[in-house]
Design a protein around this nucleic acid. Structure first.
Length: 408
RNA sequence: GGCUAGGUGGCAGAGUGGUCAUGCAGCGGCCUGCAAAGCCGUGUACAGCGGUUCGAUUCCGCUCCUAGCCUCCA
């Protein structure tokens, strides 16, 4: 996006809610200790995945005055009301409620299953501010000591940092209702009917072996656990396998095939003589087809397919300079996707250790090279068989020492 | 039950009103001492039933199935 637009990327952090409060109470620590810990881990994981950091990362606890002021405006405009220390958004007063998520407010009210709090004028009304008992974190407000409800914080942070209207709002599909619906309602009503977001990008969810990841099912995959077994680049490409709006089923097969894909790409770079890691944007222009795929609603599967077109072209040509040019184009395309920046030789050496078993394998491969030079193929093949059985694939190189890698 | 998004070749996964996705796996060939890697070739794939059209996987309707949300979790 930055190729075409001046971009400000903001990512809100909700660093106070009832789950955090519960965790803090359980540990006897202030909420800041809990949120700081998880935020750090979150940042570390994203860094390994090659996710670009936001320009600004506002936090709820630093936005309380703006939240209070926004609630005051909503009350003044007749879109919210205070009751028993709570402030609630008056849903029926906002005619477009339900538009984003395609829901009919009347039906939702009729189908409300949850017990309706007595202070609500309408079952669909949601909390903007709620009172905090002394044991729970709270801030002074015109309605007494309390804390923000879920939803208002995002409206207030967006307003404080990006203005009344933002261009693109992202988030998981699971947040469309109620969170984003409520955000639209609050922001639109606080801004005299001004449009809140021009575009919404809702990403599909990652599933695990065909079922939803959830704590209650106990099948949640943490990024840091995935990274123990696989490189960040492999996890990243695996996540880019499906279009962002589609759900993605996380399986062992997916990860294995993703490793094979990267082997194929890095193999083409290596054969073309590309060396070293790429630390800064490449000077070569990215392939137009890759750029076009990404600019078309972020079609990453299409972009990756275009990358493979370059792989094949580079592998096919026997002209060294053409091969090199295609490989550099491939790498420039990979850069747009946050891929292929590693040193190609190092890629295939990843996971190899000095000494130990790997030193022994090195030695066996060298022995086999010598046997092949003596045309003692019987003995050379015996060593290869032994290594194959140990999960090692050998690639002979004409006029040089053989390469080996662990079989995927 | 309501809403939303989907059902594409063995698997994963794009896309399109009328020749090609792509990757993995399979099969045949080239290369190789033999392999691996790579290259070349190879698949009556578009849930079912109707409709629109000269022509539909692509548009419309219905049916069946799946996932998500409407509730926890994130």
């Amino acid at each position: 996006m930055r190729r075409t637009y001046t971009l400000t990327y903001a990512r809100n952090v909700t660093d106070v809610d009832d789950k955090i409060n519960d965790a803090a109470a359980a540990e006897g620590a202030p909420i800041g200790v809990i949120t700081e810990r998880y935020l750090k881990a979150f940042h570390a994981d994203l860094h390994v995945l090659g996710v670009a950091p936001p320009d600004i990362e506002p936090r709820v606890t630093q936005t309380i005055p703006q939240i209070v002021r926004m609630i005051e405006r909503l009350i003044a405009a007749g879109h919210a009301y205070a009751a028993e220390g709570h402030v609630l958004f008056d849903v029926p007063k906002y005619a477009d409620y339900g538009h984003l998520s395609g829901r009919d407010p009347d039906e939702m009210i009729a189908g409300a299953r949850v017990e309706v709090a007595p202070y609500k004028k309408n079952p669909a009304d949601f909390v903007l501010w709620k009172p905090s008992p002394p044991a729970i974190v709270g801030w002074d407000s015109p309605w007494g000591r309390g804390r923000p409800g879920w939803h208002i914080e995002c409206s207030a942070m967006a307003e404080a940092h990006l203005g009344d209207t933002i261009d693109i709002h992202g988030g998981g599909v699971d947040l469309v209702f109620p969170h984003h619906e409520n955000e639209v309602a609050q922001s639109t009503c606080a801004h005299g009917g001004q449009r809140f977001a021009r575009y919404w990008m809702h990403n599909g969810l990652v599933q695990a072996n065909g079922e939803k990841m959830s704590k209650s099912l106990g099948n949640v995959k943490l990024i840091k656990d995935l990274l123990v077994d696989h490189g960040g680049e492999t996890v990243r490409l695996a996540l880019l396998t499906a279009h962002y709006r589609q759900p993605l089923d996380w399986t062992d097969q997916l990860v294995r095939e993703t490793g094979q894909k990267l082997d194929r790409m890095y193999g083409a770079l290596r054969e073309a003589g590309i060396t070293g890691a790429l630390a800064a944007p490449p000077s070569v222009e990215p392939p137009a087809a890759v750029l076009a795929a990404l600019e078309d609603d972020l079609n990453t599967p299409e972009a990756v397919a275009e990358l493979f077109g370059l792989v094949r072209a580079a592998n096919r040509t026997t002209d060294a300079s053409e091969k090199r040019a295609l490989a550099e184009s491939l790498r420039a395309g990979g850069w747009l996707l946050g891929l292929l920046a590693a040193d190609p030789v190092a890629w295939f050496a990843a996971g190899k250790a000095e000494g130990g078993e790997d030193a022994e394998i090195d030695s066996l491969v060298a022995q086999r090279d010598a046997l092949r030079r003596d045309r003692n193929f019987k003995e050379a093949d015996r060593i290869r068989q032994e290594l194959t059985a140990r999960g090692i694939t050998i690639e002979d190189v004409a006029g040089g020492p053989a390469r080996w890698r662990r079989t995927r």
